[in-house]
Simulated assay, not measured.
Amino acid sequence: MGRRPALRTGVQMAQDEVSAAEIRKKYKGQYRCVGDAILYALSKDWVVRDQGHGVRLYCPCGGQLGRAVSVAGTPKFPGSCAKNIRRTVDKCPDDHDLIPGPR
């Protein structure tokens, strides 16, 4: 898969980061809801990295306080998986206000 420029302006993608186009291609058909949830995470500045058959989502704050979500390439229950991704993404920004230091 060819690498595309990052959605985040001014930030270079790492070698194993996945672009939005690759997410759409990988999660289509009955897994489209999972792809949409991952794209939602990308819109909230989460980092998506390739992890074998699936992907792993990383919180923008990183470090020990950061959250991470693993997503299988073909989840058994796509709707529940998508709901879990959105729930985790929505919970995370609340913690960012409490983290000291520059962001």
Rank of each mutant, 00 (worst) to 15 (best):
R56Q: 14
G54C: 02
P78H: 02
C33S: 12
P78S: 11
A68N: 11
R32K: 09
A14N: 11
D16G: 01
I85Y: 02
G29V: 02
V11D: 08
V69S: 12
D50Q: 03
L7P: 03
C59W: 03
G73W: 09
G79E: 04
C59E: 08
G73D: 08
G66D: 13
S43E: 06
I38R: 04
N84V: 01
S80T: 09
L39C: 02
C61W: 15
R86G: 03
D36L: 05
Y58V: 06
C33H: 04
C33I: 14
T74I: 06
G29Y: 01
G35I: 02
K83Q: 15
V48F: 08
A72T: 14
Y27N: 01
Q30V: 13
A41T: 12
D16M: 04
L39N: 02
A72S: 09
F77P: 07
A68H: 15
S70L: 10
S70C: 15
G35C: 03
V47N: 12
D16H: 02
Q51Y: 03
D50H: 02
A37I: 00
A21N: 08
C61E: 15
G54L: 00
R49Q: 06
A82C: 09
V55H: 01
P78W: 04
L57T: 05
L42M: 09
P60K: 13
I23D: 10
P75H: 09
T9V: 13
A21M: 04
C33Q: 11
L39Q: 05
V11F: 04
H53E: 08
P75G: 09
A72N: 12
V34W: 07
G62W: 11
R56E: 13
G63Y: 14
H53V: 10
G66P: 12
V47L: 05
G52P: 05
G29C: 03
Q12V: 10
G52L: 00
